[in-house]
Design a binder for these strands. Structure first.
Length: 479
RNA sequence: GGCCUCAUCGUCUAGUCUGGUCUAGGACGUAAGGUUCUCAUCCUUAAAACACCGGUUCAAAUCCGGUUGAGGCCA
């Protein structure tokens, strides 16, 4: 009932709830993206909640990374919370459960629990807490607490069938007797994951929980908690996992997984957004290029896949190349600046102009165009050879280029003029490569590059002629 | 080990709910060709999949049952 009212009042409310214990990885970013798309599409709100109650493992630097990563991707949130600032709320509900005897203090030691667990596993049973401290007398509890005996707070899980409707998977059913009495807090001021989630989802009026499939088994626990606290049940949607090439959950051992890594490598945010959206989702048509606003338009949980999706780097590269090609020269130059700090603005724009269609990642500009800024090119003499040219022919070819080019006036040193002068000569032989290949290698030192005319134009007359001379020297000195 | 989930080209997927129009479509990747000094871009073409078994039906990728396989959670 309260739920319906909320829906009426402001559309769905969804959240992403990362714990700041690591960099923002693509799985998390994709969950955020789906939540964001859903909220936008349905006219709801997207909430970012930092789950930092685990003091030892949480670190503000990770929170910063998560926040910056999402901003970079263009995923905006409407509200922001930090669990560490909400302790009083959890304490209040913890006390309530304790008072109503729906939760109790447990004084079992780690070792004790571990051996029980082993026991149960070896007998083929589900490992769960045996409820030893459930029936402790109030006086006893008081005494242990006064003695500072180590304890945690457990929730009395009722044995029943827990059912819920998953928006992606349909009706799901669990036997809660297999769960046992779950730990919900280390103490009154330190709530544990499942409990804090339930309290916050209620307090923040969350209507839909959209999260990874790895949380399916947490769901019945959270539902039990909701019931005990008299909270309405939220809607669930469990997203398929992002997988590594070996089909296991994508993790660090598969290589780069953090959004920051991809950013550093020169992937564009629009690439990542487009790519991540299509991991486990598809709008149905044949269009595959979508920006954030158009994704919002098309998005629907109904089109979310049930099975895991492998993170395909090749496809990511292709998409990134595509988006790089869409950029204006000016914008692209700006993006490449940090990878090629030696270049000034106008140089950079020219360079980026000829390498735009060759870039898969921004960082590659360094490898591709670094030669422009080297004093002396280092390459093997053999590289100057096109097909079966002799050393003599190579020298002659370079001579020819040098002669023709030196005739061009400094002021008319443009790509068009260079081409006009060289092309007729190149076409006199059956294969243009005899003139153009040695020239291009002399100018770049690379076996693959942009065309010689464009490179000569950017390099300038002086540098161009000098590099041709250096190549000739190489031929003479045989090195 | 227990519980849970999933299953269409190598990969992401369309089609599955509402069986026939599916000789299963698209994209990445791969291969061949064209453009080209090289690389890249662009264009053309090709190879490439309904996990298996059984059932329902005139008809099944599509519905049902099972098997197998893969994954997730629990420590």
């Amino acid at each position: 009932m309260a739920q319906d009212l909320r829906d009426l009042m402001g559309g769905p409310r969804v959240r992403m709830a990362p714990s700041p214990t690591g960099l923002l990885h693509v799985g998390l970013a994709r969950t955020a993206l789906f939540n964001y798309l859903f909220a936008q599409k349905e006219g709801g709100k997207f909430i970012l909640r930092i789950e930092d109650t685990d003091r030892e493992r949480s670190d503000p630097k990770f929170e910063k990374d998560i926040v910056e990563g999402l901003q970079w991707l263009g995923i905006k949130w409407d509200e922001f919370y930090r669990q560490s600032e909400r302790i009083a709320i959890y304490t209040q509900y913890l006390e309530k459960l304790l008072k109503e005897s729906k939760a109790y203090y447990c004084f079992c030691s780690e070792d004790e629990l571990e051996s029980k667990r082993q026991d149960q596993m070896s007998r083929g049973e589900a490992p769960k807490y045996n409820g030893k401290c459930r029936e402790l007398q109030a006086a006893e509890v008081k005494k242990y607490l006064a003695e500072n005996k180590p304890s945690i707070i457990r929730f009395k899980a009722t044995s029943k069938k827990v059912m819920f409707h998953d928006l992606i998977r349909g009706q799901l059913e669990f036997d809660s007797s297999l769960v046992g009495d779950i730990a919900i807090a280390k103490d009154l001021a330190t709530p544990l994951y499942n409990f804090a989630v339930v309290v916050d989802d209620f307090a923040m009026k969350i209507t839909h929980v959209i999260r990874g499939e790895d949380h399916i088994s947490n769901t019945p626990k959270q539902i039990l908690l909701q019931e005990a606290l008299d909270f309405p049940q939220v809607q669930y949607a469990h997203l398929p996992l992002i997988l590594g090439p070996d089909r296991s959950k994508l993790s660090k051992r598969h290589g780069a997984v953090s959004v920051a890594d991809y950013k550093k490598d020169g992937y564009l945010p629009e690439t990542l957004v487009n790519f991540m959206a299509f991991l486990g989702w598809n709008p149905g048509g044949e269009r595959e290029i979508f920006n954030l606003p158009s994704l919002v338009k098309e998005f629907s949980l109904e089109n979310v896949q049930k099975s895991g999706a492998i993170f395909n780097l090749k496809r990511l590269d292709y998409l990134n190349g595509f988006y790089i090609r869409q950029k204006s020269i000016k914008k692209l130059a700006e993006l490449c600046k940090s990878y090629l700090p030696e270049a000034d603005q106008s140089e950079l724009e020219k360079i980026v102009g000829i390498y735009q269609e060759r870039l898969k990642k921004l960082s590659e500009i360094k490898e591709l165009a670094g030669f422009f800024f080297q004093d002396k090119l280092v390459y093997d003499k053999e590289l100057l050879k096109w097909k079966n040219m002799t050393d003599k022919e190579i020298s002659q070819s370079l001579d020819k280029s040098e002669n023709l080019l030196s005739k061009i006036k400094e002021a008319s040193w443009t790509k068009e003029n260079i081409e006009k002068v060289l092309m007729p000569e190149a076409e006199r032989v059956k294969d243009r490569g005899y003139l153009l290949w040695p020239l291009r290698v002399a100018l770049t030192g690379q076996k693959a590059s942009a065309g010689p005319f464009e490179i000569a134009a950017i390099s300038g007359k002086e540098k161009t002629l000098k590099r041709i001379q250096n190549a000739k020297l190489k031929m003479q000195n045989n090195n």
